[in-house]
């Protein structure tokens, strides 16, 4: 005697029509899910405002935009300075705390040394034809990168919304950033 389920339909077995409808429904859901994946997304959180740390988020943002990614860069704390029209042109390189600097920390800590190392780096940037921060920012904005300035830190730093480059989004917080990160294929904290 076989214990297999009998082929004959019983009351709780879906009909062929019901199964066909279910297949259609699942195919539609699959098509929708996969079509949304066509555009890749990258979400960067930029927290640093030194000259060297301003570069990575902007280089990656502009390059990802060139790949056709949707890019959001959420700037918070010192990262706000990258979006600050005036301060972005005046970012400093710290001479202390970096053992790769060609000077001991005791010398690096002398007042004015940050200005010296910053000038040295600015000269290198100019000589190497490396793009400036302003150039990278304007390029990224042109390419559709969304730059967001964290509202809590704008208030904390006593900045004004008008201080930022045109096109920068203000009035956003951690929840906005988190949602972007959840949707993104690449998430980076710089």
């Amino acid at each position: 005697m076989s214990t297999d389920t009998p082929d004959a339909p019983s009351d709780d077995t879906p009909s062929r029509a019901e199964l066909a409808a279910r297949v259609d429904e699942l195919e539609d859901a699959l098509a929708e899910a996969t079509s949304e994946d066509d555009t890749k997304k990258m979400s960067i959180i930029a927290t640093k405002g030194t000259l060297d740390m301003a570069y990575p988020p902007l280089i990656l943002a502009s390059t990802a935009a060139a790949f056709g990614y949707e890019v959001t860069v959420f700037h918070t704390f010192w990262g706000l300075d990258i979006l600050h029209e005036e301060r972005s042109k005046n970012l400093k390189l710290s001479s202390v705390g970096n053992p790769n600097m060609p000077m001991p920390n005791a010398v690096a800590a002398i007042p004015g040394m940050d200005r010296v190392t910053t000038k040295m780096m600015e000269k290198r940037i100019a000589n190497n034809d490396t793009a400036t921060i302003e150039e990278l920012l304007e390029t990224s904005l042109d390419m559709g990168v969304e730059f967001q300035a964290c509202q809590m830190t704008i208030d904390l730093m006593d900045y004004d919304e008008d201080d930022f480059y045109d096109g920068v989004t203000t009035g956003v917080g951690a929840a906005t950033a988190l949602q972007d990160m959840a949707d993104a294929d690449i998430q980076l904290l710089v």
Binding site: I59, A66, N128, D129, T130, A131, L136, T139, M143
Partner: peptide, 14 residues
């Protein structure tokens, strides 16, 4: 010519 990363890629895209 003269431009360095990421500009060659970014300008190529544009």
């Amino acid at each position: 010519k003269g431009a360095s990363c990421p500009m060659p890629v970014v300008k190529t895209k544009s």
